[in-house]
């Protein structure tokens, strides 16, 4: 069990892991990146942009750890800073105004832990992003390509639909952070965080098999999501999210 988790962590953290950027290049066109938080920073850990999916304009957010050492340093290993959440928030507000569905691609440890992010209101920015994603009047979709933990990942995952690669992970904290907080070695095995377990509780809606066909599976997942949610009113979208997460919380009582 612990080995299974270690294996998954190794896979999702590998430099050759497929990134959001690669998927964006293959499935979207007319991609236009939008930089900056409009205050003082442009966090490289968070990509934000507009693109066409087939003929529909969509907003894309993407976090990955970087594919080379230089990129990994620049992208802070995928730990989004307070300014990154401010950039993301700005981007989804525009998406809402211009009626563009929002897709997030994630492979990140969690939110950035640093003096600068704390000084710039990391807590508030994450809270605002989680709240906004929940109340968003356009459809949203989160695709966990790798892992994503804590409030830092929830800021994107608070969506109508969650799709996860079969080795993906989503938890309250990364396994390392969890052990550090509880001052114990292996605590993670009883905590549900794998795609299969999260699907069972209704949090993950669909699992992407990691075979040759990954891109076309993601393509179909996006299409299906748009078909299912494009025609819902803003009230219906908000209600669907509320019900989805209430349903997951209700699973707590059914566990054993």
């Amino acid at each position: 069990m612990a080995n299974e988790l270690e294996q998954k962590l190794k896979l999702v953290r590998d430099v050759n892991r497929i990134t959001g950027q690669e998927i964006i290049q293959q499935l979207f066109h007319q991609v236009l990146e939008l930089h900056g938080d409009r205050i003082n920073h442009d966090d490289p850990a968070l990509f934000s942009g507009i693109a066409l999916f087939e003929n529909q304009p969509v907003t894309i957010l993407s976090v990955d750890r970087g594919t080379s050492l230089t990129e990994r340093i620049e992208k802070n290993g995928g730990a989004v800073r307070a300014s990154g959440y401010r950039k993301a928030l700005r981007s989804v507000e525009l998406a809402e105004k211009f009626n563009r569905p929002v897709i997030s691609f994630l492979n990140m440890p969690g939110a950035d832990a640093s003096l600068e992010s704390e000084n710039e209101g990391q807590s508030l920015m994450i809270a605002k992003m989680i709240a906004k994603m929940g109340q968003l009047k356009v459809p949203n979709l989160a695709v966990f390509i790798g892992e994503g933990h804590s409030g830092g990942a929830l800021a994107f995952a608070n969506s109508n639909r969650i799709v996860m690669f079969e080795n993906g992970l989503f938890s309250v904290a990364s396994p390392e952070a969890m052990s550090a907080i509880l001052r114990k070695e292996t605590v993670s095995e009883v905590v549900p965080m794998t795609a299969g377990k999260l699907q069972k509780m209704g949090l993950v809606d669909q699992i992407i098999k990691e075979d040759q066909d990954v891109i076309s599976q993601v393509n179909t997942a996006i299409k299906t999501w748009l078909d299912d949610f494009n025609n819902l009113s803003s009230n219906e979208l908000i209600k669907q999210r509320t019900e989805k997460f209430a349903h997951v919380l209700a699973y707590w009582d059914k566990m054993d």
Binding site: M133, V172, P192, M193, A246, L249
Partner: peptide, 16 residues
């Protein structure tokens, strides 16, 4: 931590 992802999902459900 002892309630895993269920603790995490209190954040978005309270915010809603």
């Amino acid at each position: 931590m002892q309630e895993g992802i269920f603790s995490l999902l209190q954040m978005n459900t309270i915010l809603a």
